[in-house]
Design a protein around this nucleic acid. Sequence first.
DNA 1: ATTGGCGATGTATGCGCAAACATTGATCCC
DNA 2: GGGATCAATGTTTGCGCATACATCGCCAAT
Lengths: 350, 350
Amino acid sequence: MTRKSPLQPPSLTEARSPARRITMETVGRMAGVSQVTVSRALSDPSKVSPETLSRIQEAIAATGFVPNALAGALASKKSMLISALVPSITNIVYSGMLATFSAELRARGYQILLSETGFDREDEAATVEAHLSRRPDAMLLTGVHHADRTRRMLLGAGVPVVEVWDITDTPIDLCVGFSHPEAGRAMADYARARGYRRAAFITAGDERALRRGAAFAGRFAQAGGEGPVPIRGDAPASLAGGRALTAALLDEGFAASDGALIAASSDVLAQGALIELAARGLAVPGRVAVMGFGDQEMAAALSPTLTTVRVNRDALGRAAAQALLTRIGGTAPERQVIDVGFALVERQSA
Amino acid sequence: MTRKSPLQPPSLTEARSPARRITMETVGRMAGVSQVTVSRALSDPSKVSPETLSRIQEAIAATGFVPNALAGALASKKSMLISALVPSITNIVYSGMLATFSAELRARGYQILLSETGFDREDEAATVEAHLSRRPDAMLLTGVHHADRTRRMLLGAGVPVVEVWDITDTPIDLCVGFSHPEAGRAMADYARARGYRRAAFITAGDERALRRGAAFAGRFAQAGGEGPVPIRGDAPASLAGGRALTAALLDEGFAASDGALIAASSDVLAQGALIELAARGLAVPGRVAVMGFGDQEMAAALSPTLTTVRVNRDALGRAAAQALLTRIGGTAPERQVIDVGFALVERQSA
DNA sequence: ATTGGCGATGTATGCGCAAACATTGATCCC
DNA sequence: GGGATCAATGTTTGCGCATACATCGCCAAT
């Protein structure tokens, strides 16, 4: 309450440092209290008397003071930062999940440190290290296959981690996703049940898509389909890629007769397939059937509408956020691994 | 230091156990040097003798030490953090720009703190404050219209700022974008030049889209088209939204005769319009023409292909990153405002 | 009147690092 | 051979805050 007046007029120091930093100390001085009281006024106003509080708030408004969260995090060991690593933010399947994930966390005062990792494990490891250096309170990783070093760093750091978009028995910490082989098999079973005798899988290069493709191919042949099922492609998912892969298949005589189906690792590739088939005048599904993956908005709007596999991205993002929040809170989450499943959506294209 | 088998999920107790914090001090002790030498070994290895360096590196490897960037930032007043605020990450126009922006910055060692702000100014102000508390080295904002408080905070903080996706004579700091009214007028001029006599604009609710719409409507009438030009919609851009808005227009008799054009604030809405028109058997562009905005990949693949306006998202993200880097570097950028322009892409739909 | 408790505030400390400055020993040049 | 120089390292300090603990009045219970 009682503070000595500074021996030297503050104007001198101010004049020497024109870019004078405003800290809780400065605010406190203006309000006639100490730095701690300012800190308390911000973190728990009830601990400060109403008069003091209002003087502090005036000082904050007058100075435009914004607390330094770096210093706060260093002192408290809580950064209120959540790190998120996704392969690509331009891909709606990841950005959709991320939007829900971050909205959920932002409501609790957390902020998101985001990086794209592509599909390279070493790249991911380097990014994980960079993120860990900011001491996030938790981390989201996409996929369950990581460099050994990544796993070691994460375990060593003791940070809550959630791996999403896949399922494993050996999560680093928490895991929210679904089984890609099962999804591939479900597509194959559906295709066989509908009577398609010949199938191909066009795919992006990412590891999860390839596992769906492998499972699809295996099951399709196992269930009486013609084998081996060709698996084509490793470029990023794009319409042009889908067209090109489809064109290549057709040029090889893949759809020489009816009963053929093209399964795609994403709706975008599937749309590319539809476009190429339309361009060639091949009826879908009469001549060639098409299945997608992801159930993007356009799937239901295409002509023909696209049979695909739905993954609830919102639920996934929300579950991931909740799991981390529980973990941060200190209580053990009910389950370490949450399978959000998927659903085959039957439409016109297959 | 040594951990249990990675195949075992870490128990909660293990993860929260008082893991000795490893700091430069601990690493230094192991290597027989002081904390400062460890710091130097990491920031500029040439300042440390080769033998010392290798001992330090061994100690780092043995301990799994990851430097605390919070402490580093606090001490050096450089956070190596760039804050980015976009309306929506699920919208490809923003996420595409952001991908280039962040790739460019990551190459220089910066990381991205990301938030979605929706289209609400007060929300944005709160987010800006939260971001400023982390003392980012620079900030990216979407749009040029902000709450007064936002502007004041930013100016007060003295942080390099780049506003993107729009152009203004009075940027907070830097600005990279294009003129939305001009884009709207360019669409109107094109439509008139092609002879369309009647037009409508379907739009998402965001402020920039609305300005394009207003400029389109004004110019279309001014250039001899029938006025007033209806402007419809304020929902998020979606195929379903585009269909619904188009359906409503048609139900009102908008396209009772030939020579009508529907301009959309985004390619997605335009695609919705194409779908609705196809569903009603109305020929495009014969009966109703359609223009989009954004030139997404599907624009060239739709049937009919979509006449639209291209904005170079990569160039925009890259220019924004470069401008900030220059600014952080201390040299005044050549221009405060960079107009990246746009291009009308003529295809089949109009 | 004494004691204890509580509300409101203050002081001291250290989080982990980088910057500034200090120290040591060796090399070098006229 | 006596500075001068330089490479390699150490010591000190403080960034801005949160935490632990101390202090000071004041009032209720004894």
